[in-house]
């Protein structure tokens, strides 16, 4: 986890430092186990081909968990993620770099706290956006 980020230090247009993930096949297996998900497209390459995929696929919820981690790491321990949404647009495969990127799109007062709106996304090595999303975090002030 990163250090604390404070509302005063955040401005619309700021870019979030990228986070890179690269899932091994073993990690996909562990995620299937942790979510009790026996779908064969995540561990059985022969079967994945039956469903039209060239390889096993990274789980949508694992990519969602990474997007969540990207946001909560950026916000720091005193930040609170109040909203997160994403659109599953394209497949993600193991053993390839997946980059999570984002920028600040809004900053507003809401009942005594500061909410920061973020545009976030996951892209592959070629820069194709696999999963665009939006998030909102409440950040503490320095005061």
């Amino acid at each position: 986890m990163t250090e604390q980020r404070y509302a005063e230090d955040v401005n619309v247009g700021d870019e979030m430092p990228a986070m890179v993930k690269n899932a091994s096949r073993a990690q996909l297996f562990l995620f299937s186990a942790a979510t009790n998900n026996p779908h064969r497209i995540h561990y059985d390459k022969d079967y994945a081909e039956v469903e039209g995929h060239p390889d096993v696929l990274v789980h949508g919820p694992l990519q969602g968990a990474w997007l969540s981690q990207f946001v909560t790491d950026w916000a720091g321990p005193l930040g609170r993620m109040t909203a997160l949404s994403w659109q599953n647009r394209a497949r993600a495969f193991p053993e390839r770099d997946l980059s999570f990127k984002g920028k600040v799109t809004g900053k507003r007062e809401d009942g005594g706290r500061v909410l920061v709106d973020l545009e976030v996304w996951e892209e592959d090595e070629a820069g194709n956006v696999l999963m665009p999303g939006q998030a909102t975090v409440a950040l503490p002030g320095r005061g």
């Binding site: 993930k21 562990l30 186990a33 942790a34 968990a65 981690q69 909560t72």
Partner: peptide
């Protein structure tokens, strides 16, 4: 334990 198993599988080691 099960929450941590999920976090570990996602490789998210957030101390919280």
């Amino acid at each position: 334990k099960e929450a941590q198993r999920f976090a570990l599988a996602a490789d998210d080691l957030n101390p919280l």
